[in-house]
């Protein structure tokens, strides 16, 4: 029932320990908020779980596949989206989706159908042949998410997906995430917006490479005796 199982994962760069012996589990269909200050080791963890980095030691299972033995199968079953790069600006919406759909090995006919389906649900069909450059940032983020979902991954990793996006679009974006999670897709998301952390079913907090806390938002708030996740974050980071 778990999509992600991490056991004693460690990543060292020479003497610097970026990820210091973390363990956690993420249930299938869960929205899992992965919080922490910059440099806490979030990105390194995501890179390992996506098969971009080899862990120094420890084990992990992602989408049922062993990270060390079967990272190729993992790649086929996960989606990834980051705020830093969403899509190629000088390609049209359709061309972007076609590119990423193809490199995920979706057959041509099915891909075409899926692209128009998801453009329809985003109400962007008219813009299919416009350059990504010409559409607003909020649209781009929604489009990037739809693109990451084209190959129907079991898990999608979102690295600060809503940075720089206005509150209304953020709301719409989170509605998309809920819908997706309801279909059984696990959502692993990092964010700097603490109000967004409240929307997650489960959150974890990293600091100095270690996993300090893990639980549902309400559990953690009562346990640490604070009113909001923002306060909780302050406490953990300053500790």
């Amino acid at each position: 029932m778990y999509s992600i199982v991490v056991e004693n994962l460690i990543k060292k760069y020479n003497h610097f320990v970026a990820v210091d012996n973390i363990s956690f589990k993420v249930k299938r269909g869960e929205i899992f908020g992965f919080l922490g200050a910059n440099g806490a080791g979030k990105t390194t963890t995501i890179k390992m779980l996506c098969g971009l980095l080899q862990p120094t030691s420890g084990n992990a299972t992602v989408a049922g596949y062993d990270l060390k033995k079967d990272y190729k199968s993992i790649k086929k079953n996960i989606g990834y989206m980051s705020q830093r790069f969403s899509l190629y600006e000088d390609l049209t919406l359709y061309e972007n989706m076609q590119l990423f759909g193809t490199v995920y090995g979706i057959p041509r006919k099915i891909l075409k159908e899926r692209i128009y389906e998801s453009l329809d649900s985003l109400q962007m069909t008219e813009k299919a042949n416009s350059l990504v450059y010409s559409i607003p940032l909020g649209w781009k983020q929604k489009l990037a998410f739809a693109t990451a979902m084209l190959h129907h991954p079991q898990i999608v990793f979102l690295d600060e997906p809503t940075s720089g996006v206005d509150p209304i679009v953020r709301r719409e974006f989170w509605n998309m995430l809920y819908e997706t999670a309801n279909k059984g897709v696990t959502i692993f998301v990092t964010t700097h917006y603490m109000d967004e952390a409240e929307y997650c079913e489960k959150i974890s907090m990293m600091s100095d490479g270690q996993l300090k806390l893990i639980g549902t938002p309400s559990e953690l708030k009562s346990k640490m005796n604070v009113d909001s996740i923002a306060e909780l974050f302050q406490k953990i980071v300053n500790r």
Partner: peptide, 13 residues
């Protein structure tokens, strides 16, 4: 620089 390389490397290609 733009991060698209990471996107491509994460795909199974």
């Amino acid at each position: 620089e733009t991060g698209s390389m990471r996107m491509l490397l994460i795909t199974p290609v």
